[in-house]
Amino acid sequence: MFISNDKKQIPLWHQKASHRADGVILWDYHVICVQIKRDDKSPQVWDLDSTLAFPSPLASYIAETFRPSFQLFSEFQRFYRIVHGPILLRHFASDRRHMKDSDGNWTAQPPSYDPIVAEDGAVHTLNEYMEIHGADAVPCVEPTLMDTVRMERLGAVLSENQIEEFFSMLS
């Protein structure tokens, strides 16, 4: 799940990179994995940047990290691109260009593993996944949305109030 918005400013709480006691930080985008096991009805969130339990139950992760009861200004509203894992693994690529400044210097230490190359040889599709606009959000969660997420390369964009409903349909 990719999280962002039109302004590329999304607040998330309980993040390791924060310098505040409540762990809040503004990310331009964020990526988490939501796992649903066939034998377990409780989706789990894997967030490498979170100070919460690893993994965390989806409901508690949403409550603690997104804080839906906290009223956000419209420019900070989060939207979520949901992509099925096998589809993402075939099409996602990142050569880490987003981690370099205009002179080509690293802005952060890159991961130790090799850059990710898509099945078709593409070297950078990250921008397509993190480009998330509120206008792209589906109007409602319905059963056909599952097909979109499972088959479309870029999945589907949901608004914050649709996340739990969507995952409850899967589990």
Rank of each mutant, 00 (worst) to 15 (best):
Y113S: 14
L88F: 15
Q77E: 13
F70I: 08
A122E: 07
F76C: 03
A93M: 07
Q109N: 15
I116M: 01
E64R: 13
L88R: 01
Q71T: 11
H91Q: 14
A53D: 15
L89Y: 02
V123D: 05
H98K: 00
H124V: 01
E128H: 12
D103H: 12
D114P: 00
H98M: 02
A108Q: 15
F66R: 01
E128V: 03
R90V: 09
P55E: 02
Y80R: 00
T125E: 01
S102Q: 08
F66D: 02
D114Q: 13
E128D: 12
G104P: 00
D114L: 12
V117L: 07
F92W: 05
Y61L: 10
E64H: 12
S60P: 07
E119V: 05
S60A: 08
L58S: 00
D101F: 11
H84K: 14
D103E: 14
H98E: 01
H98G: 00
R67F: 05
S94G: 01
Y80G: 03
D101R: 11
R81G: 06
H91M: 11
E64F: 10
F79K: 04
M99L: 13
G121N: 13
P110K: 09
T125P: 02
L126W: 03
P68I: 06
Y129H: 02
E119F: 12
T107W: 09
R81N: 10
E119Q: 10
R67Q: 11
N127P: 08
G104F: 09
A118G: 04
Q109L: 13
I82F: 04
F92A: 03
S69R: 10
A59D: 14
L88P: 01
P111V: 04
E75I: 15
R90M: 12
I82W: 03
S102M: 05
A63E: 15
H91G: 10
A122C: 06
R96A: 05
E128N: 11
A122S: 10
K100N: 02
T65Y: 06
R90W: 11
F79W: 02
A108S: 14
F66W: 11
I87M: 05
Q71Y: 10
T65N: 10
D114H: 11
K100M: 13
E75N: 14
S74N: 10
F66G: 07
F76K: 07
H84W: 14
I62L: 09
L89S: 04
D103L: 03
A108C: 15
V117D: 07
R90F: 09
I62R: 06
F54K: 14
H91Y: 12
I116C: 02
G85W: 05
Q109E: 13
V117S: 03
Y61T: 00
D114V: 06
F54Y: 15
H124C: 06
S94Q: 02
G85L: 12
Y129C: 08
P57K: 11
P68M: 09
W106K: 14
D120E: 07
S60W: 05
H124E: 13
D120V: 11
P86V: 00
T107L: 15
G104I: 05
A93P: 00
M99N: 11
S112I: 01
W106L: 15
N105Y: 05
P55T: 09
I116R: 03
P115Q: 07
S60Y: 04
Y113P: 02
I87V: 14
S56Y: 01
T125H: 06
P55Q: 03
